[in-house]
Simulated scan of single mutants.
Amino acid sequence: MAEEPQPKKWKGGEEQERSADDAMATRHKVWQAMAPFREGTRRPTPADIKRTTDKFFEANSSASVEKCKDALKELMTQTGCNKVADDALLNSAVAAMAPKDGTVNVPDFLLCWNNWMKLGERPRTALIVVDVQHDFIDGSLALRACDAKQDGAEVVPIINALHRTAPFDLVVITKDWHPRDHISFHPNLTQERLHSSETRNVKDIPLFAQVKLADGQTQTMWPAHCVQGSKGAELHKDLEVGNLDHTVVKGTNSMIDSYSAFFDNARKSKTPLSDLLRRYKIDDVYCCGLAYDREQQHECQ
């Protein structure tokens, strides 16, 4: 997920530190408090913000949490909301963003608006569609061959409907994209690739076994799958991919596996995904697709 926006240079140029838990708690309060904005007929404009700050804040002076609440209520009225936020929620949200002395000046208020309140009005969202490829549906690692006997193709119409109806700011399609000599493929395992502490003979190591490789990494031995340019590496034929969607491939290094679409398993190299999320200024990330126990789980973490 994109990094949580952190308000900087609060009152008097000081920086107020926020832990990740504090940031998420504040974000949740703001999201609840800003719900009426999402029901309004239009979004607050810079002119709306200026009129409101002119009304409730005198030049270069501080305003109380109560006045900040009144300013937000005014904005909600200007933007056509049928109701204003619950008073307790507004109070909690503004107090959480205010400096310790409980007052906010205009620059502080605007900083809060741009870094927190505006996200509550309409966060920027991304959809990550994970590895909806033939080898995970009807190929060498088909889900239907697993104990649960799931048909991976069943996710395709659900993803398509989500893609069509939800206004995501960014859609990313991930793909396993392995070279033929990939180290995770069971047929490619040799004694030389095993760690010196590995006592088993390579001929005795079965498919899906875990081994310790020469570089110290623990590796599950998979059947060959999603080989670059192969049918198994192709996306399901019915998966709808838009012209503006981005594709991120992973597992391209022969010598190391990669479950996450952000980086390889040793975190030695990364994909373009984190840079894409930052470029599009994404606040919330939604994941869907196949292989939750491996790929999706690593994306979410």
Results as ranks from 00 to 15, higher is better:
residue 3 E to G: 13
residue 4 E to K: 07
residue 5 P to H: 08
residue 10 W to F: 15
residue 11 K to E: 03
residue 12 G to C: 13
residue 13 G to A: 03
residue 15 E to Y: 11
residue 17 E to T: 13
residue 17 E to C: 10
residue 19 S to Q: 06
residue 20 A to E: 10
residue 22 D to A: 14
residue 22 D to N: 13
residue 24 M to F: 09
residue 26 T to M: 11
residue 30 V to K: 00
residue 33 A to N: 10
residue 33 A to M: 10
residue 35 A to M: 10
residue 44 P to F: 04
residue 45 T to S: 15
residue 45 T to P: 01
residue 46 P to C: 03
residue 46 P to E: 10
residue 46 P to D: 09
residue 46 P to A: 08
residue 49 I to F: 03
residue 49 I to D: 00
residue 65 V to M: 01
residue 67 K to I: 06
residue 68 C to F: 02
residue 69 K to V: 13
residue 70 D to S: 03
residue 71 A to C: 13
residue 72 L to Y: 04
residue 79 T to H: 00
residue 80 G to V: 07
residue 86 D to F: 15
residue 87 D to H: 04
residue 88 A to F: 05
residue 92 S to A: 15
residue 98 A to M: 13
residue 100 K to R: 14
residue 100 K to G: 09
residue 101 D to H: 01
residue 104 V to A: 05
residue 105 N to G: 09
residue 106 V to F: 02
residue 107 P to K: 01
residue 112 C to A: 15
residue 115 N to V: 14
residue 116 W to G: 05
residue 119 L to E: 08
residue 120 G to F: 03
residue 122 R to Q: 11
residue 124 R to V: 01
residue 126 A to H: 05
residue 129 V to R: 01
residue 129 V to C: 01
residue 132 V to M: 14
residue 132 V to C: 12
residue 134 H to D: 15
residue 134 H to W: 14
residue 135 D to V: 07
residue 135 D to G: 06
residue 136 F to S: 02
residue 146 C to L: 14
residue 147 D to P: 07
residue 158 I to Q: 15
residue 165 T to W: 10
residue 167 P to R: 02
residue 169 D to H: 09
residue 175 K to N: 11
residue 175 K to R: 15
residue 177 W to F: 00
residue 178 H to P: 00
residue 178 H to G: 01
residue 181 D to F: 03
residue 182 H to R: 09
residue 188 N to P: 11
residue 188 N to Y: 12
residue 189 L to N: 02
residue 189 L to K: 00
residue 190 T to Q: 03
residue 194 L to M: 06
residue 197 S to P: 01
residue 200 R to G: 05
residue 201 N to I: 04
residue 205 I to F: 05
residue 207 L to T: 02
residue 208 F to T: 00
residue 213 L to Q: 11
residue 216 G to D: 01
residue 217 Q to R: 09
residue 218 T to L: 12
residue 221 M to H: 04
residue 221 M to Q: 10
residue 225 H to I: 05
residue 228 Q to S: 09
residue 230 S to W: 08
residue 234 E to P: 09
residue 234 E to M: 15
residue 235 L to E: 05
residue 237 K to T: 02
residue 237 K to R: 07
residue 239 L to T: 08
residue 243 N to F: 09
residue 245 D to G: 03
residue 247 T to K: 14
residue 253 N to M: 02
residue 254 S to G: 07
residue 255 M to W: 09
residue 256 I to C: 01
residue 261 A to D: 04
residue 262 F to P: 00
residue 264 D to P: 04
residue 265 N to D: 13
residue 267 R to P: 05
residue 269 S to C: 12
residue 273 L to A: 08
residue 273 L to G: 03
residue 275 D to L: 05
residue 276 L to T: 12
residue 277 L to I: 06
residue 281 K to S: 12
residue 282 I to R: 00
residue 282 I to L: 02
residue 287 C to F: 14
residue 287 C to R: 07
residue 297 Q to M: 11
residue 301 Q to A: 15
